[in-house]
């Protein structure tokens, strides 16, 4: 499988990354190079092999369903490019 410039633009859109035209051109080659190299995985027969979900076999810890954190909104928004009254401020979403 290989990608063309329209696919690169579509991926960039999905990834929410602005890509200039010249950059998109060179990404076609770079991504195809990487994907062609990854294709060798197809040589392996993985019929009946379970995809790995967790590298360390362990039972996840359960904890009491209680509030254990929070109560410091000023810390949460301290690094926001724009905030007001303990909220994040984003550009207008609905006209």
């Amino acid at each position: 499988m290989s990608v063309d410039i329209d696919t690169v633009r579509r991926i960039a859109k999905l990834a929410r990354i602005r890509v200039e035209d010249a950059q998109a051109e060179s990404l076609v080659g770079e991504l195809n190079n990487i994907l062609a190299w990854v294709e060798q995985l197809g040589e392996l027969d993985t019929e009946g092999v379970a995809p790995m979900t967790s590298v360390v076999e362990q039972k996840l810890h359960l904890r009491a369903d209680a509030v254990t954190d929070g109560g410091y909104p000023e810390d949460i928004v301290a690094n926001a490019p724009q905030s007001a009254h303990g909220f994040f401020v984003v550009p207008k979403v609905v006209e």
């Binding site: 499988m1 990834a15 994907l35 995809p51």
Partner: peptide, 29 residues
């Protein structure tokens, strides 16, 4: 950017099994 784009591609509809699930099976091996 390159890696985010590769990642977005292999997780996108139609390619998830061919790339991402295949790689996780190889990881098991």
């Amino acid at each position: 950017k390159r890696r985010i784009m590769i990642g977005t591609y292999v997780l996108s509809a139609g390619y998830y099994d061919a790339y991402y699930n295949k790689a996780r099976k190889v990881r098991t091996l």
